[in-house]
């Protein structure tokens, strides 16, 4: 137990090291943790995530969202509520919360509510087959049988990758087109080999 606790604590650093140390521009990394529900079904649930965002082109602003005004209002409302929940404050003025919520930020936030059962979704597929899944290109994401991949494409992703590890799956997403890299897969194996 002490080992797994230690690993849980360093999960964030591992995700950060993976993204910040990569040559490619990854937008986010998520660790989907494997566990079993009350019925003994294997489930991949949120372990931790690191959101880097899109490449800042030097303008100091986040990439604008393609969402409608109504959708933005909805996102801001949810963010305000989550902010109150976390901070315990009901302060109506928080400029950061009221700023536009980009598509990838929203995708990352929504991911926190998701889980994958019995090999479902991109992470489930990678875990179930013990084999990485690398989907590069908007067209391939849009036509994937996995809803998560299609959802990623809708929110502006061009590349989604799921790499299985000892007790979960590392997922990376990018708004850029990134071709398969054995270097990244090796890094995941080293950083997320919790049994070693």
């Amino acid at each position: 137990p002490s080992v797994s606790l230690l690993n849980q604590e360093t999960l964030q650093q591992r995700l950060q090291a993976l993204i910040e140390g990569a040559r490619e521009n990854w937008t986010y990394a998520i660790f989907w943790q494997s566990s079993y529900d009350y019925s003994g079904t294997a489930v991949l649930g949120w372990g931790d995530g690191y959101y880097k965002g899109e490449e800042d082109k030097g303008k100091g602003k986040l990439k604008a969202s393609s969402s409608t005004a109504a959708e933005q209002e909805h996102r801001k409302k949810v963010l305000r509520e989550l902010n109150s929940l976390i901070s315990g404050s009901t302060s109506p003025t928080d400029d950061a919360v009221d700023e536009e919520v980009t598509d990838t930020e929203w995708f990352f936030l929504v991911s926190m509510t998701q889980s994958f059962v019995n090999g479902g979704g991109l992470p489930g597929q990678a875990f179930f087959n013990s084999s990485p899944v690398w989907v590069a290109g908007s067209d391939r994401l849009a036509t994937s049988i996995c809803e998560r991949a299609r959802q990623g494409q809708v929110f502006g992703l061009q590349t989604m990758v799921c790499i299985p590890s000892a007790n979960g799956v590392v997922e990376l997403g990018s708004t850029e087109l990134i071709t398969q890299s054995s270097d990244l897969m090796n890094k995941v194996r080293v950083l997320f080999n919790f049994n070693n």
Partner: peptide, 29 residues
């Protein structure tokens, strides 16, 4: 509701803090 699992709560807190940092990031002036 307030029953947010601890892993998600920590991740969310970090996400909101980082977002605040990014948005209030000092301008070149």
């Amino acid at each position: 509701n307030g029953d947010l699992p601890i892993a998600r709560k920590k991740s969310l807190q970090r996400f909101l803090d980082k977002r605040r940092e990014r948005l209030t990031c000092a301008s070149p002036y």
